Simulated scan of single mutants.
Amino acid sequence: MEYVVKAGDMVKHFRETRLSTLKPPQEFFDHRQLSRPKDLNEATSRLTYNSRNFSGNYLLIVLLLAIYALIMNPVLLIALGFLAGGFAAINKFAPEPLQVGNHVVTQKSLYTALFVIGLPLLWLASPVSTFFWLVGSSAILILGHACLMEPGLESEYQGVEGV
């Protein structure tokens, strides 16, 4: 029960910190603010400003790309579901050793069977290539957007305090 409370607190904290920084689509996709940076210094300053300003939107892009990657790789989805479901089922239905005929089935033997079946299935699903596709596609989209998007007017007044 303690884990449920912690997970609920984590979700609440995530919603308050990250999802509260989501910018509206009109601001995120404003084509009038797109321009090529003059030099590397300007690109770096845009990257720094936009990564803070649009952090919630960038996180949403990564999550959507991860969901897309799982949908496009059904073997990986099946392998992850099999392993996660196996762990949950073993913990819920077999906490104590079971007597099946002349054999005693323990949690250790069930976990061994789960790994013997699940790990080759996971290997066939190529999770490493899916991970690197996710990292590469996210980096291209996010770095491209952050470098091409001009900072808004509010960036000019960041260091100025009210008098």
Rank of each mutant, 00 (worst) to 15 (best):
G152P: 00
L22A: 13
T130H: 02
P37Y: 03
L70S: 09
I61Y: 00
M10T: 13
L124S: 10
A89C: 06
L119K: 02
S20W: 09
S51K: 00
N50T: 13
P127S: 07
N57S: 04
A89F: 12
A146G: 12
N91P: 04
N50F: 09
I61G: 01
S138M: 08
S51E: 01
H103N: 10
G8E: 11
L143W: 06
P25E: 06
R52M: 09
G118V: 03
V105P: 07
L40P: 01
L114V: 05
F14R: 04
A139S: 15
G118T: 02
N102T: 13
P74R: 06
L60K: 06
E154T: 11
P95V: 11
R15S: 15
I61P: 00
V105K: 03
P74Q: 10
I140Q: 02
S126Y: 05
N53W: 07
H145L: 08
L60A: 15
A7C: 12
A66D: 04
G162D: 09
P127E: 02
R15P: 00
T17C: 03
Y111F: 15
P95D: 07
L70I: 06
G56W: 07
P120S: 09
Q107W: 02
T112K: 14
L121A: 07
H103M: 11
L121S: 06
L77W: 09
L124R: 11
F54T: 06
K38A: 15
A94M: 11
V135F: 11
R15C: 06
T44C: 05
A94S: 14
T48F: 04
F14E: 08
I71Q: 07
K12A: 15
G86H: 04
E27I: 08
S109M: 04
N53Q: 12
Q26W: 02
T130W: 00
E16M: 10
I71M: 09
S155M: 07
F115E: 03
R46E: 07
G101L: 06
L64A: 15
L80H: 02
V75A: 13
W123I: 13
N73V: 05
A7T: 15
W133Q: 05
I90M: 07
T17I: 13
F82L: 12
G8K: 07
H13S: 13
G101A: 10
E156I: 01
A66V: 04
S55D: 03
Y3E: 14
H31P: 00
M72E: 12
Y157H: 13
I71K: 11
T21K: 14
L70V: 05
F29V: 10
L19H: 08
T17N: 12
K38T: 14
Q26A: 15
G152W: 00
E16G: 06
V11H: 04
I67N: 03
E27M: 05
K108C: 01
L122N: 04
P37Q: 07
L114Y: 08
Q158V: 12
G118D: 05
G8A: 13
E42H: 03
M72F: 08
N91V: 02
S137L: 09
R15K: 15
